[in-house]
């Protein structure tokens, strides 16, 4: 039974990995760390999600996308639960996912306690960059400029 439920959880997880983040479609919601917990039994399929930022406008949409996807795969009584603890952090994003962010044109977050505070231009890899605005198109990003290739780019703020 234990193994069976683990298998079901892994199956759901692999389905959820097909859902891209609505604001950064290059990565999926599982990689982003938004999916926190899956409970699945005969009666209910419950997916706990956590917002990246407290006011993340995409979080409701993510809940809907999860429901839609799971219904498509035949799951019933799907319940989306919002959790705030433990608080989401950019440190949960793996190196592999950071590379995807970079290839997508977003400079990936540094580790919070890392001494390396340099922000790298995702286009030319230069670390000769400057902050233009601490706030940008979404709450999770800031706006920067590369002093070498002169391109503007966004950085995923580390929180």
């Amino acid at each position: 039974m234990q193994n069976g439920s683990k298998m079901i959880k892994n199956k759901i997880l692999s389905i959820l990995k097909q859902i891209p983040d609505p604001e950064i479609p290059a990565i999926n919601i599982v990689e982003l760390g938004v999916v926190r917990k899956i409970i699945c039994n005969e009666n209910i399929t419950q997916v706990s999600i956590t917002p990246t930022y407290i006011a993340c406008p995409a979080i409701d949409l993510i809940g809907k996308l999860i429901k839609e996807k799971l219904v498509k795969f035949g799951y019933k009584n799907i319940n989306i639960k919002m959790v705030y603890y433990p608080t989401w952090t950019t440190d949960w994003i793996s190196e592999e996912t950071k590379l995807k962010l970079k290839n997508y044109g977003i400079s990936p977050p540094n580790l919070i306690n890392s001494k390396n505070k340099k922000i790298i231009c995702p286009k030319c890899n230069s670390n000769n960059t400057s902050l233009k605005s601490f706030f940008s198109s979404t709450p999770c990003k800031s706006l920067h400029k590369c002093n070498d290739c002169i391109e503007p780019f966004e950085y995923f703020k580390c929180i």
Partner: peptide
Amino acid sequence: LEEDIAQTNFGLDLLGQAEAIYN
């Protein structure tokens, strides 16, 4: 412009806090 984005970001943060606490 940058200040506009900053102020509305703060507004959004506060609204998110309000929503979570109202819930």
